[in-house]
Amino acid sequence: MEKRSVYTNKLLPYLLLAPQLVITLVFFYWPASQAVWMSFRIEDAFGISTEFVGFENYVTLFGQRSYYESMWTTLVFSLAVTILAMSFSLLLAVMADKQIRGGSVYRTLLIWPYAVAPAIAGVLWLFMFQPSLGMIGRGLIAAGVPWNPMLNGDHALLLVILAAAWKQISYNFLFFLAGLQSIPKSLIEAAAIDGAKPARRFWTIIFPMLSPTTFFLLVVNIVYVFFDTFGIIDAITHGGPAKATETLVFKVYSDGRLGGDLGGSAAQSVVLMVIVIALTAIQFRYVERKVTY
């Protein structure tokens, strides 16, 4: 897609591009290349000089049990949040898409959590599930559940998952609703005339037609869990107890800050970059397909 009519000024376009390019180079490319550079080096004990060590940082990284544990945590976390948030949102979107009274009111009431900061979402859920004073936390204990996210890693992970999924409901709901509303009514009418009952219409017509949206949301949710849940984790658990909620991004942060192992932290950053690039590539394959579809 290109414009047919353009301007041919020599200098002006560069001036227009300059602010963005300067900021991009200084705050994106320079630090990203620094990360790559640092990942091949080791700092001496005094932090004065660095030495090239090839892939040693990567070898060390992939030799650590804790790194695999963090990967596993991230995987469980991503899948749980994605499945939870998406299925709940889809249910709500399907209900809101039925032509019922007050449909738009429901939409308004469901989309605002998007605006809540992840860290604040974490604080809200912590307040409810805190074992000694939280309303639900105490309720669980009263019901005989030995609930303690402060000490029990599984409980902590569950709480983080719930908070993260809660925050993502509005986003998924909005896109599912848009997806549902873009399915031509005539298609559903044709299926009805063909004798398909509502449930069958959903699984044979609506759900397949929705698959581009579903796939898109799948990728977006995974990216969300990877990067945007940092605030939730830091607010609720600080990655604990005993690193039970330490995702890959959180590990980059805590290893770099606390450990001061810049080379190792840089190697982790590079691995993350590879993951983002892969996810973005998948997303663009999807965009391309959408265009030709």
């Binding site: 991009t24 200084v26 705050f27 994106f28 320079w30 630090p31 990203a32 620094q34 990360a35 640092m38 990067f227 940092f230 991004v249 980059v252 942060y253 770099g256 810049l262 932290s265 840089a266 950053s269 993350l272 970059m273 983002v276 690039i277 973005t280």
Partner: peptide, 17 residues
Amino acid sequence: TLMLPVEVRIYPTYKIV
């Protein structure tokens, strides 16, 4: 730059700032 969220380059960016 779509593929470089701030989280993956956090410390080098911090250093530049």
